[in-house]
Design a protein around this nucleic acid. Structure first.
Length: 508
RNA sequence: GGCGCUGUGGCCAAGUGGUAAGGCAGGGGCCUGCAAAGCCUUGAUCACCGGUUCAAAUCCGGUCAGCGCCUCCA
């Protein structure tokens, strides 16, 4: 990508609690592992936030010229999956498989790139067992009667280095009675014996299944090695999941685990509370306050969902609301409208003039565009700041496309350059990747569909009005405009006919 | 109780030592048969108190408020 400088990238590392210059282990190559989800239900907007955040990160790392290997797992063996499967009378692995397919579909629709490797627990049992055995050999874990294996937390010196927790500060067993077979209440399960009827695999400790944290240690090790560059996930995984991963991996290999830990912020949701009024709280399955990706995709264009997520830095929490989605919709529509106007203007002349022969009047934002964009992106992927130069470009472009005349050669060149910049910058962000004319229709139709507006009826009335306007019957034309405006339809009279859009649902 | 995060104009949101990016909404204007779109223009001293400094939204201490994790969680 133009202006990209891989040496300039800075990443906030949870481990050091500071921004660090990013230097990969192997020059030019980056290895990254991101925790996926436990697949027992449809994914919600919270999952999508993390996936989109790391999608932008993977895209931008590649745009910087790095050769990235990206691994993201599916946890397909887990208590919740077993419980859900029992509820609906399905085989646990079949249920998991079904929701993996749904996840692929949802994330694909959101434009989230498929990772290079998507390992599953069920296909990595050997690697998991091997790692547990190593941990036992090294004294970092112990098997107990009944066929469970626990990690010996107190044996791992660095325990708590990621989350800043100290063993004494933890409320282990506070809410759930601690297993008396544990040496310490903080010890956690690496291998769990199974009850009859549950999915299980043979192991040196009897039939059972892996504990929750071990799969990520085993699978990241298998696909990326003992030490790799970046480990990511939602910040609710910092403790205990990621802390335990470090204990397992470093306890087993003796080598440093992930070098940079990146955590994305949660999606919040507003709720009306009788006592406290409006309160924000984390979107989560257990609170039941979630919107599934498919619900939201039913109402909004996928790039609108992405744009919404791009407006807040990935480490900050973001509040999901209708108002913010509408705002994102309008802003994306604005950018696509800008591109469409460029196409229209450029369509009025034949060939686009070559660079270098013209002094363009709107060159200022163009000259600084990539510098600003990369400066923001290299500052720990500051996407909200990176969006600013896009807006500047759009403004300059719309100034140039104001006139309906044939653009002058230097203006045409500038417009072509702006279009190219917008589309290029949109690539790592995952927006502006459609033909603008198609995107605008999709944006409009999606909103029409969500509001139950009949597009054909609208177009019919527009035709009626066009006739009235031809007859110079302004009062009838205005009456139709008002009638449609009642439904939130805004008409745009242009040189080549009338187009329409739907006004925002919520204003204040 | 422990660990961590946050508090910037009506709303959203960057900035983390040199006198506040950007977006939305609102006001004014240009354009338009009218309108929409687009363009121009307009607003904050950064929760509070104290300290460090030539200089702080930005560093340190304290207070208040909100949130997350410590149990499954993206």
């Amino acid at each position: 990508m133009i202006g990209a400088n891989p040496d300039a990238l800075t990443i906030y590392n949870t481990l050091s609690r500071s921004k660090e210059r990013f230097v990969p282990m192997t020059p030019g190559r980056v290895t990254m592992y991101v925790c996926g989800v436990t697949v027992y239900d449809y994914t919600h907007i919270g999952h999508a936030r993390t996936f989109v955040a790391f999608d932008v990160i993977t895209r931008y790392i590649r745009a910087l010229g790095f050769d990235l290997t990206f691994v993201r797992n599916h946890t397909d063996v887990d208590d919740k999956i077993i419980a859900r499967a029992a509820e609906v009378g399905e085989e646990p692995l079949a249920l998991a498989e079904r929701f993996i397919a749904a996840l692929d579909e949802d994330m694909g629709a959101l434009g989230v790139l498929t990772p290079d490797v998507e390992p599953k627990v069920s296909t990595h049992i050997d690697a998991i067992i091997a790692m547990v055995e190593t941990l036992i050999e090294r004294g970092m874990a112990y098997a107990v009667e009944g066929g469970d294996v626990f990690y010996r937390v107190e044996r791992f010196e660095g325990y708590g280095k990621l989350s800043g927790q100290r063993l004494e500060g933890l409320r282990a067993g506070g809410r759930i009675a601690s297993d008396p077979r544990k040496e310490s209440p903080h010890d956690f399960a690496l291998w769990k014996s199974c009850k009859p009827g549950e999915p299980s695999w043979e192991s040196p400790w009897g039939a059972g299944r892996p504990g929750w944290h071990i799969e990520c240690s085993a699978m990241s090790c298998k696909h990326l090695g003992d030490t790799f560059d970046i480990h990511g996930g939602g910040n609710d995984l910092v403790f205990p999941h990621h802390e335990n991963e470090i204990a397992q991996s470093e306890g087993a290999t003796g080598a440093p685990f992930a070098r940079y830990w990146m955590h994305s912020g949660m999606v919040n949701v507003m709720r009306d509370d009788d006592q406290q009024g409006e309160i924000v709280e984390k979107m989560s399955k257990s609170l039941g306050n979630f919107w599934t990706v498919r619900d939201v995709l039913g109402a909004y264009h996928p790039e609108v969902v992405r744009y919404f997520m791009l407006t807040t830095h990935y480490r900050q929490p973001i509040t999901y609301s209708l108002k913010m989605m509408e705002e994102a919709h309008d802003r994306l529509e604005y950018l696509y409208t800008t591109l469409s106007r460029i196409n229209e203007a450029l369509g009025r002349i034949g060939t686009i003039p070559e660079a270098g022969n013209f002094v363009s009047p709107a060159a200022a934002p163009l000259e600084t565009f990539f510098a600003k964009f990369h400066e923001a992106m290299c500052d720990d992927f500051n996407v909200p700041a990176a969006l600013v130069p896009l807006g500047e470009l759009a403004k300059a472009s719309n100034e140039l496309t104001k006139s309906k005349k044939k653009p002058k050669p230097d203006a045409a060149y500038t417009l072509a350059a702006i279009r190219s910049c917008l589309v290029q910058a949109g690539q790592p962000l995952g927006i502006l990747q459609q033909l603008p004319e198609e995107a605008l229709v999709e944006l409009r139709d999606k909103r029409a569909e969500a509001l139950g507006i009949d597009s054909e009826a609208i177009e019919q009335r527009i035709n009626d009005r066009s006739q009235a306007r031809q007859d110079r019957d302004w009062s009838l034309a205005d009456a139709i405009r008002d009638e449609l405006a009642e439904q939130g339809i805004e008409l745009m009279d242009g040189a080549d006919g009338t187009s329409w859009r739907i006004a925002r649902v919520t204003k204040a």
